[in-house]
Computed example of a mutant assay.
Amino acid sequence: MTDQPETPETPETSQPKKRAPLTGIVSTAREWLPPKSQMAALAIAALTISNIATWVLLTRNDPPEVMTVGVREMTQSYMASIALSDITPEEAGVQMDLFMSVTQDTLQRAGRNKNVLLLARECVLAGQADDVTREVGEAVRTAMSRAGGARPTANAAPASTGVQGG
């Protein structure tokens, strides 16, 4: 036995400190990264370039081409053709619902073009706009025939006059 008092060894003093596993990776990455001032300058340059590019794109875009469709005229013509056909009121309701959904879908697909603004003909009070009622009417008739809808005898779309002026 010894004359000195024994001090119990604590686990902290007996084992070396463990470093977090990512500490070595982080310290290595810090050696390779540029200083914070260079990172800030890079971020400012990237934001400036993106803002200038956005501004150029916004100012270079052409204004949309305005086109009109005689939706009211198409609908009235189709309703008249249904009224003159030999179908029951229930069938007429189904046909009208089909016509309206096909017309809405056709107009939405036509309006997806980024450079086209599609308006109802009645919305244009002054100025000139191309009238695409005939083309839309043909697309609606084609879609109706594919959907299996019975077509009344009259045309669903009236003849358009081409360019409408105010």
Rank of each mutant, 00 (worst) to 15 (best):
A157H: 01
Q95V: 08
V71R: 07
A45K: 13
M1D: 08
V69G: 00
L22S: 08
M144R: 07
A159P: 03
S77W: 01
A143F: 03
R60P: 03
L47V: 04
G111D: 06
E138V: 06
A143D: 15
I87W: 05
A43Y: 04
P152N: 07
R60M: 12
K36R: 14
G93Y: 03
L125E: 09
R19T: 03
I49L: 13
Q4I: 10
R151K: 04
P89R: 08
V69D: 02
V136G: 01
V102L: 07
L47A: 12
P8K: 13
A126T: 10
Q104N: 10
L42S: 14
A139E: 14
I82K: 00
T23I: 02
D97F: 03
T59I: 07
D62K: 02
L84N: 07
D3S: 07
A159T: 04
P34V: 14
T88A: 10
L22Q: 05
L107C: 04
P16E: 11
G148F: 11
A126V: 08
E90N: 09
S85Q: 06
S81K: 04
A143Q: 15
G166M: 07
Q15N: 12
L98N: 12
A43R: 13
E65A: 12
R72N: 13
V56P: 00
K18H: 08
V132E: 09
I25D: 10
A80G: 10
G148Y: 06
R151Q: 10
A126E: 13
A80Q: 12
A110K: 08
E65R: 09
A92V: 02
E73W: 00
I52K: 01
W32Y: 13
F99H: 07
A110Y: 06
E9I: 13
F99K: 06
V56H: 01
A147Y: 12
T28N: 09
N51V: 05
W32I: 06
I25G: 06
V69Q: 01
S101P: 00
